[in-house]
């Protein structure tokens, strides 16, 4: 048994053409590794029906100009984020703890990415 046809919601309108998106497509966040040895960086988001489609969409949307050698996609809903209203309690207390910065010794000049 196949499920009934998905409802669609209007996403945006280009001229007279309504772009629609199946209502059950989820939002995914996309991370691209530019080259080996670097970490994956967040580059944006996209819609897809599942993870496999999300990876292909990520390839089509975010690696058109040789931006990467590896892709990660993560369901946006699976990301747990700190709340903006907690920012003061979370981050301000670190302001006056300068002794946590490694400023009291010299970094060898050959070390570039520390």
């Amino acid at each position: 048994m196949r499920p009934s046809a998905p409802r669609v919601q209007s996403l945006k309108v280009y001229g007279a053409i309504a772009m629609t998106l199946p209502h059950d497509w989820a939002l995914y966040e996309v991370f691209v590794r530019a080259k080996r040895g670097l970490d994956h960086k967040h580059v944006g988001s996209l819609h897809a029906a599942d993870a496999a489609m999300a990876i292909e969409h990520a390839r089509d949307l975010y690696t058109r100009r040789q931006e990467g050698v590896s892709l990660w996609v993560v369901k946006s809903a699976d990301i747990v984020a700190s709340a903006p209203e907690d920012a003061a309690a979370f981050f301000d207390p670190a302001e006056d703890k300068i002794y946590r910065h490694p400023t009291f010794y010299d970094i060898p000049k050959d070390v570039e990415t520390l």
Partner: peptide
């Protein structure tokens, strides 16, 4: 292009 079922598919077909 500009007529795909989603903007992601626009790009897919264009590529």
């Amino acid at each position: 292009i500009g007529h795909g079922p989603a903007i992601e598919e626009d790009l897919g077909c264009a590529n």
